[in-house]
Amino acid sequence: MTNTEEWDIEISPKTSLFQIDFKEIWRFRDLLSLFIKREIVSVYKQTILGPIWFFIQPILTTLVFTVVFGNIAQISTDGQPKILFYLSGIVLWTYFSEAITSTSTTFTANAAIFGKVYFPRIIMPLSKVISNLLKLCIQFLLLIFIYGYFIITHKTTLNLNYNIILLPFLVLIIMNLGMGIGMIVSSLTTKYKDLTFLVTFGVQLLMYASPVIYSLATLQKNKPQYYSFIAYNPISPVIEAFRKSLLGGVVDYGMILYSFIVSVVLLFTGLIVFNATDKTFIDTV
């Protein structure tokens, strides 16, 4: 008789390894959009400059990089305008690092609310990644503006090429990587808090192992022994490809495919770990 009964929710200790209830996520879509809105609006609540802060951060970072790495340390930018060279790397890198750091606190930062009410937990990291995506779009505007400025004033050939159509795909790879790594970290931190410390400075250090302040070509010329190590960092081909599609150069499609495969593997690992954690994390956090 029980077999014929229809239950909307069935809960038992056993859960399948990989299970995402898309119907449920759809039902909570309004929550997702509210969270995204909250993420963006709460950044400039009670500030004087408001949304201008979205521009100030990349501008100042670019200026500091130009002075420190470009002028003082004299690291080659392959003859490209320094500002554009650094800004294009910084914009993508910022998205990557913010996606990781903001999703990696999903469980610890929301323990109070997760402990009281049920909603698909995936909504949380999803909202972080999407709200940061919107910030990325705003910062692309800045990049376009400065790019236009360089075309008009410097009259240099910047070699914007057809590879730019890869951009959405590149952003997708960063999204997968950021969300995947973030979810793995957030799941593990519920039991092993040591990881929190690792992530905060680990992501910062990782930037130096990615071609943000230098190009892979420069690296190969000066320090070939590090080349393969940094080239196979999955974020490296993405930043390189983006920069080359803006400023000219040969894009290595094979390496982009490599990055994509790594990002998908990490994303699915993240989903599985996250899924296994979100049911009972409240007992261990």
Binding site: E5, I9, E10, I11, S12, P13, T280
Partner: peptide
């Protein structure tokens, strides 16, 4: 907000 160790809930 958490799963049971044994048993089920419908």
């Amino acid at each position: 907000t958490t799963l049971p160790t044994i048993g089920s809930l419908k």
